[in-house]
């Protein structure tokens, strides 16, 4: 297992390296932040001075080399926009995103698994049909629209929940969290639900399909025949076997929520990283973009590792050392 983890880290470093090269070349092709941000009253001499100050007049490989040198000193550069180290800018917004992603994932499992289980166990019940039809809506309605509807209904019309922002936070372990306050939770509910909707539908359908596949199998019949309670058959024998694809999807979706929750974050003015990366791309803030993508690569590798470990817990036949050859 240890060797495997080392190998994962090696992979991550390699992917990060490739990605920084791609970002550097890509950003260089698009443009430079000077032309975008410079004062309209600045003289051509001032423009030239700024380009030199940022080293943007240097060939791309020199700029890249400087970046690598900084990296060795754990310096990912200073944001062109925020005047703070790129890593700090991202880390300021990281807790908000993680918190939202966890809440959304939790909600989607909480909604998706029981509904899917029910629909799988009683495929012909009217309620099951209703659930399945509802899940199509969950898939197909655009996040943006649903988010706006949530705000209109729950904030503007009913006045139950705040329309956006993060609410009160409590500092725990030096980081600000909002799930520890009532106000923070009420701010989190709508965006989390908005993010969870698509995922819940996905998990619901996966669970239902899994249940339908597992139910007719011999070991389930055997379990019934042995006289085990229905509860034990469903929640231990069926559910555990259904969970493997669900865990994979939950893991991947968790990663993508963290990396790409920009639409929800923007609508609900949630101060997370998703909006940061889009703004940074728009402003060509290269240090932020590079640092952000490096963190995301690291995150995905970690999530995959956790998912693999979970497999072995759910299904003892799966061995970790084999998992890496997938």
């Amino acid at each position: 297992m240890f060797a495997s983890i080392l190998q994962r880290i090696g992979q991550a470093v390699f992917v990060m390296f490739c990605m920084t090269v791609v970002v550097f070349i890509g950003m260089n092709l698009i443009g430079n932040p000077i032309d975008l941000l410079i004062s309209p009253s600045a003289t051509p001499a001032e423009r030239a001075r700024l380009i030199a100050e940022f080293g943007l007049d240097q060939p791309i490989w020199v700029q890249y080399w400087r970046f690598l040198v900084g990296l060795v000193h754990l310096d990912l550069g200073t944001s062109y926009i925020f005047n703070e180290p790129a890593l700090r800018v991202i880390m300021q917004r990281f807790p908000a995103t993680i918190e939202l992603a966890l809440a959304a994932t939790f909600l989607s499992v909480l909604i998706g698994v029981p509904l899917g289980l029910y629909a799988g166990l009683r495929p012909y019940a009217p309620l099951s049909r209703f659930i399945m039809t509802g899940s199509i809506l969950g898939f197909s309605l655009p996040t943006f629209w649903v988010g706006m509807m949530f705000i209109l209904v729950f904030s503007v019309q009913l006045g139950w929940l705040p329309s956006g922002g993060r609410g009160d936070t409590v500092t725990l372990l030096g980081v600000k969290w909002s799930f520890l306050t009532w106000d923070g939770l009420s701010h989190m509910l709508l965006p989390a639900l908005n993010l969870a909707l698509f995922k819940a539908s996905l998990i619901l359908r996966l669970t239902r399909a899994g249940v339908a596949e597992v139910l007719p199998q011999d070991y389930v019949r055997l379990a019934h025949a042995k006289g085990l309670s229905a509860r034990r058959v469903v929640f231990v024998h069926v559910l555990k076997n259904v969970m493997i694809p669900v865990v994979t999807v939950v893991g991947l979706e968790f990663g993508s929520v963290i990396a790409f929750s920009v639409v929800t974050e923007t609508i609900f003015a949630w101060p997370g990283m998703g909006k940061l990366i889009i703004d940074s791309i728009n402003n060509l803030d290269r240090p932020i973009i590079v640092a952000y993508l490096m963190i995301i690569v690291l995150l995905f590798v970690t999530i995959n590792l956790v998912v693999d470990i979970l497999y072995t817990v759910l299904d003892p036949r799966v061995q970790f050392s084999k998992a890496r050859t997938r």
Binding site: V156, S163, G164, T266, A269
Partner: peptide, 18 residues
């Protein structure tokens, strides 16, 4: 000061009194 980048959300925040 609260940043609310999306136009629709900004309007909703005003209408809901936030």
């Amino acid at each position: 000061f609260r940043p609310i980048p999306t136009g629709g959300s900004r309007v909703a925040a005003l209408q809901s009194g936030d």
